[in-house]
Computed example of a mutant assay.
Amino acid sequence: MSTGPEGQPTPGQDHGHAQEGRTRDGIRLGRIAGVPIYLAYSWFLIAGFTVVVYGPTLALRQPQLGAGAYFVAFAYAVLLLLSVLVHELAHALSARAFGWPSQKIVLNLWGGHTQFEAFTASPGRSVVVALAGPAANFVLAGAAWILVNTLVLTGVADILSNIFMWANFLIGLFNVLPGLPLDGGRIVESIVWRATGSQERGTIAAGWAGRIVVAGIVFFGLVLPWLQGQGLDISFTLVMLLVAAFLWQGASASIRNAGFRSRLPNVVAGQLAVPAVGVPNFATVEQAVQAGAGHGVVVVLCAPDGKPQGVVDPAAITRVPEPARASTPVTAVGYALAPGAYVPETAGGQELVQYLAQLQGTEYAVVDAAGRVVGLLSQRAVVAAISGRPSR
């Protein structure tokens, strides 16, 4: 039930295989308030788990239901799905009020998430959007409480009304816990963000708070009862461990992604590239050597219009006899760059990373404002700068 910009928009993802109503996100259920809604295939796992675990318990407590107890259990799973959908719609609609377009809502094994397109956030608005989800669940729980205490309900209606009330209350309460990836983690993020002026520091702090929340859930939910000699239900223990693993993974991903974002300003093409010079693709091997290829300088081959096309391979030059270098075309000792694999030396940050992700190949020529080749940028150097790890 996360609320951040889960990823950048993917062209065509919203309507691929639209005729069949299925995409890699799952089954497309339609649109609500203009936002595409998808039901991930993983949801059927949690629905099946709910039926298998809750069905026998309900049949034991309500023997008059018979086999209908399993249908009630499935209805419980559907009500949970509805509660999560309302939760995510609250995120999407509150974000729209701030001009943050929602790309889609995906309902899955762990609840769901709202994916936004690119937007500029602020600490205060981030909190509002994050808490809109739990607030919607508290409203549903309150409405169900009024229904339960106003009408005289019996049988299945009474069971499902109480389940709906408590489910929404617990969903809302769980999501305001102060740690990412839960919605309450945005509060921690925003407090640190406002205090330091850095959203990345806020995200890292909220990610660590999320890890502390996980430790608390495991300790108070499993370890402490075990130390007190209480027996642990296998189904409950399994669910707790799965939830803890999911939350830990989400918190760790938040910390990791914040580290990536904090290093993006240092990802500048001209600073990461090795120096290079350009020679025409009609030059000879001898001219490439004179340009510096024989002395460890990277030489980039350029088309007549000056656009980079390839790179000279120093090892290939050594295999050309010196008497033949003056008559051997430089293209014989070069390898091609991917089409369009060149960037301005001032290009940097997320814009550079997104552009390079669209290109094939692993090397890119770097040009100055006049279009002259000044360097060669490798994919490994970019990855090393983003990850903070040395290039291998």
Rank of each mutant, 00 (worst) to 15 (best):
V279D: 14
V279C: 10
A326V: 10
L247G: 07
V297P: 13
S252Q: 03
A293L: 03
V285H: 00
V223E: 15
G296C: 08
I234S: 05
P314I: 01
N281A: 04
V289H: 00
F282P: 02
V311A: 01
A251M: 05
D305T: 08
R325K: 07
A283I: 10
D233I: 01
P323Y: 12
V243Y: 06
V277A: 09
A215L: 11
D305E: 12
W248V: 02
W226A: 12
A291T: 13
W248G: 13
N281L: 05
L242I: 12
D313E: 14
V289W: 02
K307I: 07
G306T: 04
F236V: 13
V289Y: 01
L232C: 09
A276V: 02
P314F: 03
Q287I: 11
H295R: 09
V223S: 08
A269S: 00
P321I: 05
W248Q: 13
L272Y: 04
G296Y: 07
V214I: 01
I317K: 12
V277S: 08
F260P: 04
V299C: 14
F219Y: 07
L238E: 02
G210K: 09
L301W: 13
G306R: 05
S327H: 07
R319M: 10
P323N: 12
N281D: 15
E286R: 09
A273K: 00
